[in-house]
Design a protein around this nucleic acid. Structure first.
Lengths: 234, 234
DNA sequence: TTCATGCTTCGATGGTAGTCGAAGCATCGG
DNA sequence: CCGATGCTTCGACTACCATCGAAGCATGAA
């Protein structure tokens, strides 16, 4: 029985922690690049590449080339269904409290994802921007409203400079530790940079963790208060 | 990320070939004993025991003691759902042809499953019995029709003796190598015994493989010809 | 009690696959 | 054309885990 029977094949693909993280990240429905997935899964690019090759040859994901990047998505609704049932199964069995995502509490609170803020703080930020009408979320993606643009300008973001860039201004990014969306894209990057410039936060060298200064934390909570009812994760 | 996140845990459990075989065998809905499962999975009792402990602690199976034996069943409908979707997924991805089950061709053709015939021959037998109206398959299970009872009697099966037994007369059993149903239950056992008595086949000592004699093969094909359109596997 | 059966635990072995460093290719921008 | 970025391939290392032999425990039968 050393010859892998079909069902075990697919299950074994999901069974590896790194691949499971990749698949979970893809559950957002968004297409993500290999490097983003590597970051989300907490492995290096080489490892992620190897995993992605296996996932694709196993029929769990599909890849489409677009310009310079490769975008990976889940292959079918069946894959989504399996992942969701597995999640619910794990939850029911009490394996929910298992630490998903970074074990470091600080890292869970705030960290860098690609180049924008991630973690609980980032989800709070995203929730506020949606609730205040700065962002509108549609099927097609996220767009910055006029009032949102004004707010960003007031916060010191140079939107004109961002408009010239190739990368999308706003992008939804599934948060690993929070399992909810936060803001990526060039605007997400600009916000992180701006907050750094304001002295609100500092990156921890050699780590993805970001620490807020006490003053920065207060200012952040004041500027982007936690929205009452945020968009649902699942 | 070494800490296994929930979803990977359950998936990894299904991901091992031996465990996948065990779970597939349990998909019949019947409670099976560890030794039976060891047989089905093609591993020794010790190995199966280890696997069963993991499956149970992972919440995929439940065990209930009854008299001298232990009976294992799948834990919930969710587990069934996951296994079924995984099967369909694997089929869709062309991994159907992958050798599932015993690698020995003879064993694939015919073998013993608990005490009844399994393998390609068994699927042929089951297909004929359904096509000829000897069996009716309903949601509730399989029942032997009057004409079927007559046919069994003509074949030399003592149905009256079987009626006294506790175990069900007919049982659907998912075939490991063929991924299609065959006939289990006391009738399935009786059929195997009868064919053995007729000299159609012989069990290979120390193996689950069953070999048909040339004469027995001809008689089998004559008595239970392959049904034209069998029930679809995938 | 003693024996037999069925299942589990222990200990040792081997194979498999996940992981990363470093180098090799593409693709795009200047 | 050159340089940079993003991704893949190659090679080697490591660790985990499935597997089995043999012994240890139950449970039920004689």
């Amino acid at each position: 029985m050393k010859e892998g029977p079909d069902i075990a094949r697919a299950a074994a693909l999901i069974g590896d922690p790194a691949r499971a993280n990749i698949l979970t990240a893809l559950l957002s429905g968004k297409a993500l690049t290999p490097s983003e997935l590597a970051r989300e899964a907490g492995v290096t690019a080489q490892t992620a590449s190897s995993h992605l090759a296996k996932l694709e040859s196993g029929g769990l994901t599909v890849t489409r080339r677009q310009g310079r990047h490769r975008y990976v998505t889940l292959a079918s609704e069946e894959v989504v269904a399996v992942l969701e049932i597995l999640t619910s199964l794990a939850a029911r069995n009490g394996h929910l409290r298992t630490r998903t995502g970074p074990r470091d509490p600080d890292m869970r609170a705030a960290r860098v994802c690609y180049n924008h803020l991630a973690g609980a703080r980032a989800v709070q930020l995203y929730g506020h921007l949606c609730a205040s009408g700065a962002l509108t979320v549609t099927q097609a993606g996220i767009t910055l409203t006029d009032s949102g643009a004004a707010a960003m300008d007031a916060f010191g973001i140079d939107l004109a400079a961002l408009a010239g860039k190739r990368s999308p201004l706003c992008r939804e990014c599934l948060d690993w530790s929070e399992r909810r969306s936060h803001l990526g894209g060039s605007l997400g990057r600009a916000l992180l940079t701006r907050m750094e410039d304001l002295g609100w936060l500092a990156r921890v060298p050699g780590s993805r963790t970001v620490t807020f200064t006490p003053r920065g934390q207060r200012a952040f909570d004041e500027t982007f208060p936690a929205a009452r009812a945020a968009t649902e994760p699942a």
